[in-house]
Simulated assay, not measured.
Amino acid sequence: MLEAAGLTTVEETVYRLLVTSATASAEEISAQTGLPSEQAEGVLAALATKGLASRTDRQPRHFAASPPDVALLPRLQRHADALDRARTAVTDLLESYHSAARRQDAGQLIEVITGREALRQHLRQMQDNARHEVLWFCKAQYVAMPSGTNRAEYDALARGVRYRVLYEQAFFDDDGAIANVVEGVRAGEMARSVPHLPLRLAVADRTIAICPLVPGGPQGNPSEPTAALLRDSSLVGALTALFERYWEDAVPLHVSASGTMSGTDDAADPLSETDRRLLSLLVAGVADKAIASQMGLSRRTVQRHIQHMMTIAGAATRMQLAWQAARRGWL
Results as ranks from 00 to 15, higher is better:
residue 128 D to K: 06
residue 109 L to D: 02
residue 121 Q to V: 10
residue 114 T to Y: 00
residue 133 E to S: 07
residue 126 M to Y: 07
residue 134 V to F: 11
residue 123 L to Q: 12
residue 125 Q to T: 13
residue 143 V to E: 09
residue 123 L to N: 07
residue 137 F to P: 01
residue 124 R to S: 04
residue 115 G to W: 04
residue 111 E to G: 12
residue 130 A to V: 02
residue 123 L to S: 08
residue 120 R to E: 14
residue 120 R to P: 01
residue 115 G to N: 10
residue 115 G to T: 04
residue 136 W to T: 12
residue 139 K to N: 13
residue 134 V to S: 01
residue 135 L to K: 06
residue 125 Q to E: 14
residue 139 K to I: 05
residue 142 Y to A: 15
residue 124 R to E: 09
residue 130 A to Y: 04
residue 136 W to I: 07
residue 131 R to F: 04
residue 143 V to W: 03
residue 127 Q to Y: 07
residue 111 E to V: 05
residue 118 A to F: 11
residue 139 K to T: 14
residue 106 A to M: 04
residue 140 A to R: 12
residue 115 G to F: 01
residue 137 F to K: 08
residue 142 Y to Q: 10
residue 122 H to M: 06
residue 114 T to D: 09
residue 104 Q to H: 13
residue 107 G to H: 11
residue 143 V to H: 02
residue 126 M to R: 10
residue 117 E to R: 10
residue 134 V to E: 00
residue 105 D to C: 10
residue 134 V to G: 01
residue 120 R to M: 14
residue 110 I to G: 02
residue 127 Q to I: 15
residue 141 Q to H: 08
residue 110 I to C: 00
residue 142 Y to N: 13
residue 113 I to D: 00
residue 111 E to M: 11
residue 134 V to R: 01
residue 113 I to F: 07
residue 136 W to F: 13
residue 114 T to R: 07
residue 130 A to L: 02
residue 128 D to I: 09
residue 121 Q to H: 09
residue 112 V to F: 11
residue 122 H to L: 05
residue 131 R to V: 14
residue 140 A to Y: 03
residue 119 L to D: 02
residue 117 E to M: 05
residue 122 H to G: 12
residue 109 L to N: 03
residue 129 N to W: 10
residue 129 N to D: 15
residue 129 N to R: 10
residue 120 R to Y: 10
residue 119 L to N: 02
residue 133 E to T: 14
residue 116 R to W: 01
residue 130 A to H: 00
residue 105 D to I: 10
residue 132 H to I: 11
residue 109 L to P: 02
residue 143 V to Q: 09
residue 131 R to Q: 15
residue 139 K to F: 02
residue 131 R to G: 03
residue 121 Q to G: 09
residue 119 L to H: 02
residue 133 E to D: 10
residue 139 K to L: 12
residue 134 V to Y: 04
residue 139 K to M: 14
residue 114 T to K: 05
residue 135 L to M: 13
residue 140 A to M: 08
residue 136 W to R: 11
residue 115 G to E: 09
residue 111 E to R: 13
residue 109 L to I: 15
residue 140 A to S: 14
residue 143 V to N: 06
residue 132 H to N: 11
residue 119 L to R: 01
residue 125 Q to S: 13
residue 126 M to S: 06
residue 109 L to T: 14
residue 133 E to A: 06
residue 132 H to C: 10
residue 119 L to Y: 03
residue 108 Q to N: 05
residue 110 I to A: 03
residue 119 L to P: 03
